[in-house]
C-alpha cells in the first residue's frame, strides 16, 4: 500500500479524531491524533494485516514552551512505527496539555516501548497509564524535576582552575547549584 492509501483509510475510520494528516515532501506519512482515540489508532495500526506496523522505532517528547508559547497544547509525543515485512513507515503525533499530561501506554502492543515510556516520565513528567513498571529510568530516585522540560535550567557551574586546593574546596562549598552532594 502507498502512504496516501493508508492515510485515506485512517482518515475514513477515525474521522474527527485525526486532527491532521499528510504525506510530507520526503514521502513520510505523518498523523496527528487526539489523545482519547490514540490507543485505538495504535492498536489498529499494529493489528491491521495490510499495514503491519509491528516495529516501534522510538518514542520521544517535545516541549513547545519556548518555540510557540501560544500553542494550545504545550507538549507533544512522537511515535515512529515501521513494518518489518513491508516498506511502511508512519509517524504519529499526540498533543498533551500542560496540566497533568497523561498518555496511555502502548507496552502491550510493542514491548520495546518499555524504556522510552519510562523515559517520557523521567525526562518530561508525562504520566504513562498502565505501564507495568512506571518509575524513574535515568535520573536517580528522588531527583527533583524533569530535565528535558524547557523551563528546567541547564545548571552551568563555574569551574575553578586553581592549584590551590583550599581555594577550590571553598569555592565548591558555596556552590548551591550542585543537586546531589557527593561529599555526603
Amino acid at each position: 500500500m502507498t502512504n496516501e492509501e493508508i492515510r485515506e483509510q485512517i482518515e475514513a475510520i477515525f474521522e474527527s479524531a485525526i486532527q491532521h494528516s499528510k504525506v510530507t515532501a520526503h514521502g513520510e506519512l505523518e498523523v496527528r491524533v487526539a489523545v482519547d482515540q490514540f490507543l485505538m489508532l495504535m492498536a489498529y495500526l499494529k493489528q491491521n494485516r495490510d499495514y503491519d506496523f509491528d516495529y516501534l522505532s522510538h518514542i520521544t517528547g517535545v516541549d513547545y514552551l519556548d518555540m510557540d508559547p501560544d500553542r494550545e497544547f504545550r507538549f507533544e509525543v512522537v511515535y515512529e512505527l515501521f513494518s518489518s515485512k513491508k516498506d511502511h513507515h508512519i509517524r504519529v503525533f499526540v498533543d498533551l496539555p500542560e496540566v497533568e499530561p497523561t498518555i496511555p501506554s502502548v507496552y502491550h502492543l510493542w514491548h520495546g516501548a518499555d524504556f522510552p515510556e519510562r523515559e517520557l516520565y523521567d525526562m518530561f513528567g508525562f504520566i504513562v497509564m498502565d505501564h507495568p513498571n512506571m518509575k524513574r529510568l535515568i535520573m536517580p530516585e528522588g531527583w527533583e524535576g524533569h530535565p528535558l522540560l524547557r523551563d528546567y535550567p541547564l545548571t552551568v557551574e563555574e569551574i575553578a582552575f586553581s592549584h590551590n586546593p583550599d581555594h577550590k574546596s571553598e569555592l565548591i562549598k558555596t556552590q548551591e547549584d550542585v543537586k546531589v552532594d557527593p561529599w555526603a
Binding site: 557551574e157 569551574i159 557527593p182
Partner: peptide
C-alpha cells in the same frame, strides 16, 4: 578532570569533588 564539554545538571564537574 573538570567536566569537559559537559557543563550541565548531570555531570559532576571534576571527580576531585568526590
Amino acid at each position: 578532570s573538570c567536566g569537559g564539554i559537559f557543563n550541565n545538571y548531570a555531570i559532576v564537574q571534576g571527580v576531585d569533588r568526590v
